[in-house]
Design a binder for these strands. Structure first.
Lengths: 208, 208
DNA sequence: TCATAAATCCCCCAAATAGGGGGATACTAT
DNA sequence: ATAGTATCCCCCTATTTGGGGGATTTATGA
C-alpha cells in the first residue's frame, strides 16, 4: 500500500493551482502528474494521465465543476474526485456528492488536512471539511417537534413512497377507512389537501 | 471560547467507560462530569449534570442508544450527542443521525480523534469516523448508469414528490399525454406497473 | 375525574386519476 | 439507417382521491 498517489488538479486560479501542486508534490508518497485550468482543457488529456485522485474546483470557466464530475468519472471510472472550493451552499454540496464526488473540502482547509484527505479518499473514506460535515449530518436530522403522531408520520412516509390507501392498509394491517382517517388528520394538521402538498411540506420541515 | 467542555458518558462496558473517562478527563479543557451504564440510570440525574456533550453507546441494556437520543435531547435541548459504537450498519447510522445525533464515531477511533471530535461537535461540526463518512457520502450518490433518460428521471422525481400527471405536465410545460408517454416508458424500463413500485425500485437503485 | 389526543372503523358522494391498449411525428446521435 | 428521445393524440375502465358526516376505545395528562 505504499504506492505513490497520482494526483491531478483542475483549478482556474493559477496561484492556487501552483500552490496546491507544490504542496502536494513536495509530500512523500504523492505525485502531481498534471494540472489544468478548466474541464475542457483537462478532458483532452486526463484519461491518459490516469490519476488516482482529482482535486476539482467548482467555479470553473466553461463546464463547471459539478457538471464535470460525471464526465470525469466516465473518463476515469476508478478515479476519486475530491471537491476543493469556496462554495458552501447546500445545493452545491449535495449536487456534487450526488454526481459522484467522494469528498468535499472548503478552501480554508489547512494543507495538511488536504493532503491527508487525498490519502483518505483513495482508501475508501469520505473526507469533508468540518462545516460541510455539519450540513451533511443536519440533512439527516428529523424535526423533533412534529405535529404528527407516530402513526400519522408512518402513513405519511408510505404516501411519500407513492403508495395508495389500499396498499398502506395492507401493509399496516389496518382498515382502509382507518388509513383515510389518518390521512384526513394529517391534512388537517398540515393544512393541505393533497398528497403532493403534504409530502412537500413534510419534507421541507423534515417531518419525514 | 476557552471554557471547559463538560462531558457525560453513557456506556455499559465498565472498562471502556472508565477508559474514556480517564482519557478525556485527563485532557486540558475537558471535564467528565458523570458516567452512566444505561439510559435509564442516566435519565434520573443527567438533566442536573448539564453536560455540553454526551458520549453515547448504542448497545445498551434497557432503552437502546438510538431511542435514547430524542429523550436526551428533550431533557437537554442544547446538548450535543456523539455516538460512540461498534455498530456500522447503515440503518443504525441513519437512524441515529435522524434522531438527532451530531456525530458518529466507531470504537476503533483513536483517542486523540475522540477528544478532538468532542470539541468539534460543540463548535458546530459533525465529526464522523472515516468509514462512517464514506457511507454517508455514498448515500447521496446517484447511480451513474441509469437506464432512464434525463426527462424520465425528472418525471420520476416528481412522481416521488406525490405529484399527479396533471401537476407534472403543468410544472414541465408539456402535455398531459406526453407525461403519460414518459411514465409508460419508465414503467417499461423498470419493469413495473405502478407508481409505488417505480419509486421503490428507483430509490433502491439510486436512480432518483 | 374529565378532557384530549390517538388509533381504530363506518357510511355517503362526485370528480380526478391511473394504467392498459393503440398509435404518430420530429430531432439527434451513432 | 437505426435506436433512442421527446413530444402529442385517441380509446377504455377500474381505482383512487378527497370532502362530507359520523362512532368507539384506549391512553395520557391536567
Amino acid at each position: 500500500m505504499a504506492r505513490t498517489i497520482k494526483v491531478s488538479i483542475i483549478e482556474d486560479d493559477e496561484t492556487l493551482r501552483d500552490g496546491y501542486a507544490f504542496l502536494i508534490g513536495a509530500t512523500e508518497g504523492y505525485d502531481v502528474i498534471s494540472t489544468y485550468c478548466s474541464y475542457d482543457e483537462a478532458s483532452k488529456k486526463i484519461a491518459t494521465d490516469k490519476p488516482d485522485v482529482i482535486l476539482l474546483d467548482i467555479e470553473l470557466p466553461g463546464v463547471n465543476g459539478i457538471d464535470a464530475i460525471p464526465k470525469l468519472k466516465k473518463l476515469l471510472p476508478n478515479c476519486y474526485v475530491l471537491i476543493l472550493t469556496v462554495y458552501e451552499s447546500e445545493k452545491q454540496i449535495f449536487n456534487a456528492l450526488a454526481n459522484g464526488a467522494s469528498g468535499y473540502l472548503t478552501k480554508n482547509t489547512p494543507s495538511t488536512k488536504i493532503i491527508e484527505s487525498i490519502k483518505e479518499v483513495r482508501e475508501g473514506g469520505g473526507p469533508m471539511s468540518i462545516n460541510i460535515a455539519r450540513l451533511v449530518i443536519r440533512s439527516f436530522q428529523k424535526n423533533q417537534e412534529s405535529p404528527l403522531s407516530k402513526r400519522e408520520t408512518q402513513i405519511l412516509e408510505l404516501i411519500g413512497e407513492g403508495k395508495s390507501r389500499a396498499q398502506i392498509a395492507n401493509e399496516l394491517f389496518i382498515d382502509l377507512e382507518t388509513v383515510r382517517s389518518h390521512i384526513k388528520n394529517i391534512y388537517l394538521k398540515l393544512d393541505v389537501n393533497s398528497r403532493a402538498d403534504a409530502i412537500k411540506l413534510a419534507r421541507q420541515n423534515k417531518l419525514i
